[in-house]
Amino acid sequence: MNAKSKSRWNIGIEVIMILLALLFLSPFYFLLANSVKSFGEILSDAASWPQHFMWSNYSSAWKLARFSEAFRNSLIVTIISVVLISLFSAMAAYRMVRANNRFNRVLLLLFVAAMVVPFQTIMIPILKVVNVLGVNNSFLGLIISNLGLSIPMAIFLFHGFIKSVPLEIEEAATVDGCNPISAFFRIVLPLLKPMLMTIIVLNALGIWNDYLLPSLILQAPELRTIPLATFSFFGQYTKQWDMALPALTIGVAPIVIFYLFMQRYIVEGIAAGSVKG
């Protein structure tokens, strides 16, 4: 095939892909355009560009759905969970690689096996455990559950990564009088940065978007995360699209902005996480 027909072929592909991308984006157009229309205008024509921009839709939805509270709650739960998942998993995986005894090998098998267990299989007893611990209806209960559910996969990914980290650097540090704990925090942890980013990004997306687990643990309205606040608001204002759509836009915006800024890490993280998995 000559160069000319090849480049014409590529232009054809490019045009088709751009059209396909517009089709992929069209739900966002419907969402955004209709979120600033009056109720009557949405009913009469949901496809056109808005004639009058009703920005007040946004301020009403923001207040009624208590989004400032929900946003803060989502941030607290996501950040604390992700930091602890990353830290505890890196520590455990490090020890399991460096002390490769029978106990730790069995433990690794357990973690891998746990990755196959669907959340729905253990969700009912998890609630019982959370109740017995007395952390029901609290961020603490949700964070503990997030840790227990996300640690297996994080350990599995770190375990594969740490195996490729050379032992010599740590040994040199130990000779220089570093104990294993400070050797881990000062020397090993910084070397784990690529895999750390993967784990942070994958867990941050998963926990931020999670609906089922928080809906089971958090009952108090003031504890609602963004998916919970959106769900309850959408339930109250079903078919009242001039309220529901701005609320959805507000709910979606933080994660889309996060994605656009962190895109490189997210995409690399997924590729790295899946290849190792």
Binding site: F88, M91, A92, M96, V129, L149, F184
Partner: peptide, 25 residues
Amino acid sequence: GQQAFFVGPALLFFTLITIIPFLMG
């Protein structure tokens, strides 16, 4: 001590939220 320090926290949460609920289930 090292085993407890490094693996302990992860194992604790994993046991509480995955192993025990699985057995209870």
